[in-house]
């Protein structure tokens, strides 16, 4: 794939018609979130993250990425069932994880490589390991990839309830007025 194909991807194209990255990013519609945009109380030392339903365990197929957004619709991410227990993994197999897909270097949208379970940035070649807590395998970002903290309830519903790094393009993970 030639670098630069994504140069003209518009600011919000991922909301208009799905990601235009290459193979790997699921074309599925954004999973229903249901939650209203949350606003943190500024008096708190840390932002108050929404608890957002991303999907049900039954919706997931091993190594097939599901597009999500969290903590609001302007922050795209990916929900993955990796097939083996991993760092931060939830569910009965300890293998369900979710990450932001905006590269923390310059905010380009990344695509999922099913072969080695990495997220790859077409902007400047950075890549992140979904099986190692989003560790940057190689790249320019000065942080590892924000991983969304997940909880699974008794019905198998998967909820995102926080992120462990600052999400690209916002100075508060939960946008504040």
């Amino acid at each position: 794939m030639k670098c630069g194909k994504l140069v003209d991807v518009g600011r919000r194209s991922f909301l208009r018609g799905g990601l235009m990255t290459g193979a790997g990013v699921a074309a599925a519609a954004v999973a229903g979130t249901g939650a209203a945009p949350a606003h943190a109380q500024t008096s708190l030392a840390r932002v108050q993250n929404p608890s957002t339903r991303l999907a049900n365990l039954a919706d997931l197929v091993v190594n097939e990425p599901l597009d999500i957004t969290y903590p609001d619709e302007d922050s795209p991410g990916v929900l993955l069932k990796l097939g083996t227990p991993v760092q931060g993994g939830v569910g009965p197999d300890g293998d369900v994880v979710a990450f932001s897909v905006m590269c923390p270097h310059k905010g380009w949208l990344m695509s999922y490589n099913t072969a080695d379970k990495t997220l790859n940035c077409p902007g400047h070649f950075s890549r992140f390991d979904c099986e190692a807590g989003g560790q940057q395998v190689w790249g320019h970002a000065t942080q590892n990839l924000p991983q969304f903290q997940l909880r699974v309830d008794e019905t198998g519903d998967i909820f995102a309830e926080g992120a462990d790094e600052l999400i690209y393009g916002r100075l508060s993970n939960v946008l504040q007025a």
């Binding site: 794939m1 990255t21 290459g22 193979a23 790997g24 760092q87 695509s111 999922y112 490589n113 099913t114 072969a115 080695d116 990495t118 790859n120 940035c121 077409p122 070649f125 950075s126 890549r127 390991d129 099986e131 190692a132 807590g133 560790q135 395998v137 190689w138």
Partner: peptide, 12 residues
Amino acid sequence: GLSFKSWEYDAG
């Protein structure tokens, strides 16, 4: 827990 995957960009 370290990643030992390839450093090469590969969109898959």
